[in-house]
Nucleic acid binder design. Structure first.
Lengths: 118, 118
DNA sequence: CTGTATCCTCCAGGATACTG
DNA sequence: CAGTATCCTGGAGGATACAG
């Protein structure tokens, strides 16, 4: 039976997955890799995700040191997120995943059609 | 609100994740990349997973064309799984994930300790 | 040995309402 | 604008029993 280990800390793949596995994390990293973004901008960029969830994912990415949060104590308060060096080291992997998935896309579409379990 | 799209078929990353995202899939691919394996061998290799779950993941990997199943109609029946060319094309990515995670491991351990939410 | 059918638990992620 | 607190639900994946 599976033991609820805090995380398979001995498995590199699992560690990486823990960091990028969140539903919106790769999108966020991809976006921040282009430049700094404010929370409200991100919320607008991902209208399919509720703001709460985006904030959640931002918090985790920040905790893992993939992104950085800068708070400008203005009125109203302004917040900006940017990618860190560690976060940047993730981009090559994300691009590989994207490329592979894109190449596989035609086959995936056929598979989904043929085994249609809609 | 998030629409239950059968899969973000337009996002390469999500397609790749769909294929390798299962809890035991990378382990299985990793193992089959070394050589052919019978189900019972895999069950023994991953004692923390119930056989049912392994079979599940095998089925999905097969459906996606990452592995191949060969049935020898003997008594008792013998079955062997092997990795396909498409499956093999996944290995570089898995190795990158593993490498990145392994490099990040020390930091991850520190993060887990400091923010201990056990 | 290989595989399916049942049942159940847990939690990521979604909706909503609210505070500063 | 930024952020938190509540509540809720679907589905991945776990245990177990059983069939070919």
């Amino acid at each position: 039976m599976y033991k609820k280990i805090p995380l398979d800390i001995n498995c590199g793949v699992k560690i990486a997955m823990e960091v990028i596995g969140g539903k919106w994390k790769t999108y966020i990293l991809y976006e921040l890799d282009w430049g700094t973004r404010r929370p409200s901008e991100l919320h607008r960029l991902f209208p399919d995700a509720s703001p709460r969830v985006i904030n959640q994912q931002l918090k985790e990415l920040e905790r893992h040191g993939m992104i950085e949060k800068t708070i400008y104590p203005e009125l109203p308060p302004r917040v900006e997120y940017s990618i860190t060096e560690d976060g940047g080291s993730l981009m090559p992997i994300i691009h590989m995943l994207e490329q592979w998935g894109y190449n596989f896309r035609p086959k995936m579409i056929r598979i989904l059609e043929e085994t249609e379990e809609e």
